[in-house]
Nucleic acid binder design. Structure first.
Length: 1097
RNA sequence: GGGCGAUUGGCGCAGUGGUAGCGCAACUGCUUUACACGCAGUGGGUCGGGGGUUCGAAUCCCUCAUCGCCCACCA
């Protein structure tokens, strides 16, 4: 009959409303509106990679942010959800390089730095908008006028400013250190970018000869037959023997390494990386190891025939506590240039560093002829072959160990010595000071420095942060106490270039003042006494003096002068953080550092650099610190912890009040989403199939606080079904016509209302073109007036359920429990409103009675809009429906922004409201408040009616069971007889009839059923299903017996408890009463069932 | 090696001291005038094992087991 679409069709609706919101500038935040009455609420988006594509993780993340933002708007807050994208250094550069290779068969070197960067920008222009548009499809209500990119000119200036400030403080330094080197990307990486993975390989044992073996010949302890030469016994041996008694059994078991029959001493070394033998500069043993301690200070002969720069044939044996003598053979080869731990041993023993690899992971000249040019893994094989040929390979056994992988390129990183920029983290309060750790420890601020050696004190932050779930606070804290300096330079082209210019020059007493003043004022200049080439390997560079030209205070304080003593070659660094690019420094012979900064060195400024810092913009003043941050726990160290540091350092306050950590999206088998597995669904495809609201709802439903989300397309389907249910419930309401007093429908008959619904001029939910004039809110925000004298028990019941739903959803959102909120909404709307209330309302609309009296006619098929109760009663039901629906749409809006906006307008709920409070868009309609006492007492909403209705519906369920058990098809209308135990209102009888899908419901207080008539016993009375034809007495008997069994078991349970004397003594009175009442209820029931059963005999 | 989390019907989850729940799946019946993207109904759980506290434990404590995640320089 109707042309209104039976099913909700999201595509057109979503596009229409999103455009409407944009046109009306509904997402734009206005700091000038912020006041005490209208508090600010802000979120900064975790900026997706500029070239990224929307995946399920983004959906989860951004849906949550959108829900929080929309809820905050409805709470009357001024909301800023600040969006943007991240330049994502390595990821983006790699993508462009790949495309370049594919399309033009060129490398970045073919193009050169400048031209290559142009290409990246072109690429960014082309792809950068994609993910932004995808977020729009999802319904995200970001303030797009404030969209930022981490490479925007203003943003870049922030990065430079921060760099220079930290450089000034001495927190940023340059040094040759052991870094994580990715041979594929050919750049250094931070510790956080290295992922440990178990790796299958081999442990190789090879033996090396001790050069000074003859020193030990003739030792008394040597079991040698042919010993003709007497040698002094080494004191070392006896010393270590004493130690041996206290050593571990394993070590004690070992004998001293002494010359064997061939007169030689062989040491066996265990390694997983034989290809680094050419880089070895020592062999280390534990000084407490009785087997080898006496050899410390001697040398071994390097086994491989390699090319060696200096005299490196003999390698010293050193003693170092780091060596675990229970591991391997207890003899460690030390390769200071290619292993982090070895580097430290090397530093302790002043060992030379021999680099034997190229940046791309191939072996260099120093590795020696056979290995030179080979890839490191190839070289490993070859060196093993060589050891075999030499006959020194003792053992080769399969071995699994943890190897650091480059997170980006997925290849093992190479520990490599290289000149990089590092950041000593600025001081930051530990989590106890800034993160609420639960009720028990609203701890006093106990500030500390991130780098303990720094010793600077940290004031406690103005506010505290709350992590959700809280357990992440511990993780954050643990990281904070263990951090190493951050390697912030990357050997890439795409990124923020390090704003430091360098020149090596000779400074003398006579030239230094003229030279430095030529470079201009207000620059930050650092001079480092240049070390000679020979000493370059010494890790600690010596900072001679820091001074700032043009800054008198510093000059005085430092009293820096070039004197006769410190004349010499200097490395002069100038950090530039002004609006210019520093190019002019080239005139003076300076060159800019070629490296760029780690992407996270720009991301960590995101919460304030996006708001106009360092200017004190109105936006920054109004919206910093932000309210909520929503992100994945996988970037807690990369991003969250560092933002906290940066916020604290540069803004003097923590950047957020709450940090919500989402779970990880997995597939329904619990596997992580990955491209290789192909188990990652395309959200846009899901949106086009099911709608954005469906995707959002489905995702939220399965996202309990902080737990991983097992994604299943079924959930999205459920979301779609839910939207459809909402659609149809509103459609049903529309079909019943006007609520009378609402101006939206006044004077319009149901039919013409329907016509209007379908008409071309006013498509359902069409956006209004003009803002409506402001009007005071009606007292209870109802559409039609609800008249309390006409309220049915069902009306009261649903109003109380609505009240409960409002409370549940509000609480759940306040606690970031999005799955709880959706569950509450689902239960309320589907299981309570639709399944019961709407069905019961049909008694009013279509019931076979008119007025409040039976009309005597039994029309089994009343046509729609004919029959039912009188107009006043109908109007009242419509008013209740409107009240409930209007509240429901608002409760749903943060989750389902599109369909709720469509229905808000389609139902005309916007009509009575001021433009800024829901008249123009549901986005700014007030968030529903729980029904207050005044409302409840006015409408007499209390437990009595709720209980009554619960009992009524229970009776219906049991009555429906009778049908099933009597094998009556659902569709068949049958006669029921009800024998009420008290008074029953005609309307309630009608409700029973409709809900039971009965042909008639005869209310007969004196009904005498035939023996064996199926019956239901309820506190309201007895319901009979008189069957025509044969009554199956046995069937009814067995049905009742079964019920009796159930009752007996329940009685037994409760009675058991009550019979326990300790129970009655110790239990609280309320619990005791509850149990007693429960027992009583069951016993009453039992009596009735028993009586019915007896009647069958 | 340390830390954190999980273990509840076939699957995914809720339930922090008082009658074990939800969704999906399964099964049965239904073109009932909002919705088959629907309606009505049914079956299915000794709450990972063991021990303890308590009148009472899925819930608190101890212990074990399994799985997952994070951190850690054992060659």
């Amino acid at each position: 009959m109707s042309e209104i679409p039976k099913a909700y069709e999201p595509q057109a609706v979503e596009e229409k409303w999103y455009q409407f919101w944009l046109d009306q500038k509904r997402f734009v935040a206005d700091p000038s509106r912020v006041s005490e009455k209208r508090p600010a609420y802000s979120i900064v988006i975790p900026p997706p990679n500029v070239t990224g594509m929307l995946h399920m993780g983004h959906v989860l993340n951004n849906t949550i942010q959108d829900i929080l933002s929309r809820k905050a708007r409805m709470d009357g807050k001024e909301v800023l959800w600040l969006p943007g994208t991240d330049h994502a250094g390595i990821a983006t550069q790699v993508q462009v390089e790949k495309a370049l290779k594919k399309e033009e068969r060129k490398t970045k070197y073919d193009l050169g730095r400048e031209e290559f960067l142009k290409r990246v920008w072109t690429w960014k222009e082309k792809h950068g908008g994609i993910i932004i548009n995808q977020l729009k499809k999802l319904g995200c209500s970001c303030d797009w006028t404030r969209e930022r990119f981490t490479m925007d000119p203003e943003y870049s200036r922030c990065v430079q400013k921060v760099f220079v400030e930290l450089y000034k403080k001495g927190l940023i330094y340059r040094g040759k250190r052991m870094v994580n080197w990715c041979p594929v990307s050919q750049t250094a990486l931070s510790d956080e970018e290295v992922e440990m993975k178990p790796q299958k390989g081999f442990m190789y044992h090879f033996k090396v000869e001790v050069a000074e073996a003859k020193d030990f010949l003739g030792s008394a302890r040597v079991p040698r037959a042919d010993s003709g030469v007497a040698a002094e016994s080494s004191l070392n041996i006896f010393q270590s023997e004493e130690l041996a008694s206290g050593a571990t059994p394993d070590a004690a078991r070992g004998t001293h390494a002494l010359p064997g029959p061939d007169g030689k001493i062989w040491l066996t070394i265990a390694t997983t990386r034989p290809e680094t033998i050419p880089g070895d500069t020592a062999v280390a043993v534990n000084p407490k190891d009785p087997r080898y301690a006496h050899l410390i200070g001697k040398h071994i002969i390097r086994p491989l025939p390699i090319q060696i720069p200096r005299e490196q044939k003999l390698i010293p044996i050193i003693g170092d506590e780091h060596v675990d003598f229970e591991f391997g053979t207890g003899v460690l080869k030390v390769t200071p240039a290619h292993d982090k731990a070895d580097f430290e041993i090397g530093a302790r023993h002043k060992l030379p560093l021999i680099e034997i690899m190229n940046p791309n992971g191939t072996m260099n000249t120093l590795a020696g002829g056979p290995l030179e040019g080979l890839d490191r893994f190839e070289a490993r094989k070859v060196s093993v072959e060589q050891l075999k040929e030499l006959g020194v390979l003792v053992e080769e056994k399969p071995y699994e160990n943890n190897v650091g992988y480059s997170q980006r390129a997925d290849v093992p990183i190479e520990p490599r010595l290289s000149e990089q920029w590092f950041l000593k983290y600025p001081a930051v309060p530990e989590s106890k000071a800034c993160v609420e750790q639960g009720d028990d420890s609203v701890g006093r601020a106990s500030p500390r420095a991130a780098n303990p050696q720094e010793g600077s004190s940290v004031a406690s932050p103005h506010q505290k942060m709350q992590f959700h779930p809280q357990r992440w606070a511990k993780v954050y804290d643990h990281w904070l106490t263990n951090i190493q300096d951050w390697c912030i330079s990357r050997q890439l082209w795409w990124g923020h270039r390090i704003p430091v210019w360098h020149k090596r020059m000779h400074l003398t007493q006579s030239n230094w003042k003229s030279e430095t003043s030529a470079w201009g004022f207000d620059r930050y200049i650092r001079c480092i006494k240049n070390e000679t080439e020979a000493d370059k390997s010494v890790p600690e560079t010596d900072v001679v003096r820091i001074f700032s030209d043009g800054n008198e205070v510093d000059l005085k304080k430092g009293a820096f002068e070039i004197t006769a003593q410190n004349e010499g070659a200097y490395d002069v660094f100038i950090a530039v953080a002004l609006d210019d690019d520093g190019k002019w420094l080239e005139q003076f012979g300076f060159t800019q550092d070629p490296d760029v900064l780690d992407t996270w060195f720009s991301s960590w400024l995101w919460p304030f650099a996006t708001m106009g810092w360092p200017e004190k913009t109105p936006t920054l003043k109004a919206f910093y610190p932000t309210t909520d941050l929503v992100t994945g726990p996988d970037i807690i160290f990369f991003w969250v912890a560092r933002m906290i540091m940066a916020g604290y350092e540069f803004m003097g306050d923590l950047p957020f009040k709450n940090v919500y950590f989402t779970g990880i999206i997995r597939d329904k088998q619990g596997r992580k989403m990955s491209k290789t597995l192909g188990n990652s669904p395309d959200p846009l495809e899901l949106i086009s199939r099911f709608g954005a609201d469906a995707l959002r709802f489905g995702t939220m439903r399965g996202a309990p606080l902080g737990a991983d989300v097992m994604f299943d397309e079924k959930d999205v389907e459920l979301g779609r079904n839910f939207c459809n249910k909402l659609w149809n419930a509103c459609r049903f309401r529309q079909m019943q016509g006007s609520a009378g007093v609402s101006p939206a429908y006044s004077g319009v008959s149901p039919e013409s209302s329907l016509n209007q619904f379908q008409s071309e001029e006013r498509v359902l939910g069409e956006p209004p073109n003009t803002a409506r004039e402001t009007r005071a809110l009606p007292q209870f925000e109802v559409e039609g007036e609800i008249r309390r004298e006409l309220l049915t028990s069902d009306d009261k019941w649903i109003l109380l359920k609505l009240d409960a739903a409002i409370r549940e959803v509000t609480t759940a959102l306040a606690e970031y429990k999005f799955s709880d909120a959706t569950a509450a909404l689902y239960k309320f709307f589907w299981s309570e409103y639709c399944d019961w209330y709407v069905e019961a309302s049909k008694a009013v609309f279509f019931g076979s009675r008119r007025g409040n009296e039976a009309d005597g006619t039994d029309n089994p098929n009343p046509p729609p809009h004919v029959g039912g109760y009188d107009e006043a009663q109908k109007q009242n039901t419509l008013a209740v429906m409107d009240f409930v629906l209007s509240n429901t749409l608002r409760l749903f809006h943060p989750f389902l922004p599109f369909i709720t906006e469509e229905l808000w307008h389609g139902m005309g709920f916007n009509k009575d409201l001021p433009a800024e409070q829901g008249g123009n868009t549901i986005m700014f309609a007030h968030w529903p408040k729980p029904l207050d006492d005044e409302f409840k007492s006015h409408y007499v909403l209390d437990e009595t009616d709720e209980q009554f209705v619960n009992t009524k519906y229970e009776l219906v369920t049991q009555g429906r069971n009778l049908r099933r058990e009597g094998n009556i098809p659902s569709s068949k209308r049958v006669k029921f007889v009800f024998k009420p135990s008290g008074e029953l209102k005609p309307l309630d009888a009608e409700v029973l009839k409709i809900l039971l899908n009965a042909e008639t419901l005869e209310v007969n207080p004196t009904f005498a059923p035939k023996k064996g008539t199926p019956q239901v016993l309820s506190p309201l009375g007895e319901l009979y299903l008189p069957l025509e034809g044969l009554i199956d007495v046995d069937a009814e008997k067995s049905r009742l017996s079964k019920e009796l069994e159930k009752i007996d078991s329940e009685i037994e349970k409760v009675q058991g408890k009550l019979n326990n004397p300790a129970f009655a003594e110790k239990v609280p009175a309320s619990v005791l009463d509850e149990h007693k009442k429960r027992l009583e209820d069951w016993q009453v029931k039992k009596q009735k069932v028993q009586a019915a059963l007896d009647a069958l005999e």
